[in-house]
C-alpha cells in the first residue's frame, strides 16, 4: 500500500505537472522515483491518472456553453443602461432646455431648414427609419425626438463624418430607405442603382405612412440588421461610407448580399464612381468604431 502525506502528494504532483522543472527539487524527486519502489509506483499511477483527468477537463471544455438567453438579455439591458447613464462628472441635463431644443429641431425639420434629411416610414416595421444629414454637430435628428427614449440621455453622439468637411450633407435630400429583404448578388445589385428614389419615399416625420411597394415584409429583413435600424447607428454607418468614398447617399436598402445580411447603399458623386453610382453592401457591423468595418461588396453601376 502506498500512502503519501499531503506535502509528498503535492510535491509529486508538481513534479509530474512540470512545476519543478529546472529546480533542485525536481532532481530530488527524480532521484526518489528512480531509487524508491514506492515513489516509482506512485509516480506511474499519478502520470496515468493525470492524463485521464486532463482528458476529462478537456472534454468538459469542449461542451458548448453559450450564454443562456435570459442572461444575455440581462447583460444587454445592464450595458444599455450603462450607455445611457450619465458618466460621473457629466453635466446635468436641463430637461426644459432639452425639450425646447428638440422642439426647435422638429421645427427646422418640418420647414425644411434642416440639412438634407430623409425619412421613410418603413412598412411593416412600425419603426420610423430616419437618415440624418446633420452630422457636423453630432446632432442626429430623430423622429422620436420627444419620445423620452433612452437615446436622449446618451452621453455619446454619432461620430462625425470623415472627409466630408461637415459643411454639406452626406445624404441626398431625396434619399430613400427601403427594406426589401432581397438577396442580391454581384449581378443583380446594380439594378438597385437604376432605381430612382421614389417621391413617395419622402414622408413627414412620424407620419406613419409607408411605401409598402418598396418595403419588404418585416420577416424578410435579416434580424442581424436590427442594430442598423437605429438612426444613430445607421448614421454612423453612412457617415463611414461617405467618409471613405465621398459623395452623397441616395438610397439604402435593408437586404442581403449573397445570403449575408447587408445594408445596400447607393452613393452618388463618389471619388471612385467617375460619374457612376457607387453600390456598396455592408454588413451588420458597419459604423462600429466610426469605420465601414464590414464591407461585403463594392462596385459601380
Amino acid at each position: 500500500m502506498t500512502t503519501f502525506s499531503d506535502a509528498d502528494f503535492d510535491l509529486l504532483a508538481d513534479f509530474v505537472g512540470g512545476a519543478l522543472d529546472g529546480t533542485p527539487e525536481a532532481d530530488d524527486v527524480r532521484r526518489l522515483v528512480s531509487t524508491d519502489e514506492a515513489w516509482a509506483e506512485a509516480y506511474g499511477a499519478l502520470v496515468t491518472a493525470e492524463v485521464a483527468v486532463r482528458d476529462r477537463l478537456t472534454a468538459l471544455g469542449a461542451e458548448p456553453l453559450p450564454v443562456p438567453a435570459d442572461v444575455a438579455h440581462r447583460l444587454n439591458a445592464a450595458l444599455q443602461d450603462a450607455v445611457v447613464a450619465p458618466r460621473p462628472g457629466a453635466p446635468v441635463l436641463d430637461l426644459a432646455r432639452a425639450r425646447e431644443a428638440r422642439r426647435h429641431r422638429r421645427q427646422r425639420w418640418a420647414i425644411g431648414l434642416a440639412t438634407a434629411a430623409a425619412v421613410l416610414i418603413c412598412g411593416g416595421f412600425g419603426v420610423p427609419l430616419v437618415v440624418s444629414g446633420q452630422h457636423d454637430k453630432g446632432d442626429t435628428v430623430t423622429s422620436n425626438a420627444d419620445g423620452g427614449g433612452k437615446g436622449e440621455a446618451a452621453p455619446q453622439s454619432a461620430p462625425s463624418p470623415v472627409g466630408s468637411g461637415g459643411t454639406r450633407s452626406s445624404i441626398r435630400s431625396d434619399a430613400a430607405l427601403v427594406a426589401s429583404g432581397q438577396d442580391y448578388g454581384p449581378g443583380t445589385v446594380g439594378q438597385l442603382a437604376k432605381v430612382s428614389p421614389p417621391a413617395a419615399a419622402m414622408a413627414g416625420e412620424g407620419s406613419g405612412n409607408a411605401d409598402t411597394s418598396k418595403s419588404g415584409k418585416p420577416e424578410d429583413v435579416p434580424a442581424e440588421l436590427r442594430r442598423l435600424r437605429d438612426p444613430v447607428a445607421r448614421a454612423a454607418c453612412l457617415n463611414a461610407v461617405v467618409g471613405e468614398y465621398g459623395g452623397q447617399v441616395a438610397l439604402v436598402d435593408y437586404a442581403r448580399f449573397e445570403g449575408q445580411p447587408a445594408l445596400v447603399v447607393i452613393v452618388d458623386g463618389t471619388r471612385l464612381g467617375a460619374g457612376k453610382r457607387l453600390v456598396i453592401a455592408v454588413g451588420p457591423d458597419c459604423g462600429i468604431g466610426g469605420a465601414i468595418a464590414d464591407e461585403l461588396y463594392r462596385g459601380v453601376a
Binding site: 500512502t3 506535502a7 504532483a13
Partner: peptide, 28 residues
C-alpha cells in the same frame, strides 16, 4: 494545475481513495 489535477484524480476515481495506512519515505 498539477496539484488540482492530482486531487481531481482522486475525486474522479482515477486514483484509489485514501486508506490511511502504510507509507513511504517522504522527501521531507
Amino acid at each position: 494545475c498539477a496539484r488540482g489535477r492530482a486531487r481531481l484524480a482522486v475525486m474522479l476515481g482515477h486514483l484509489r481513495n485514501p486508506v490511511g495506512s502504510g507509507g513511504v519515505p517522504s522527501p521531507n
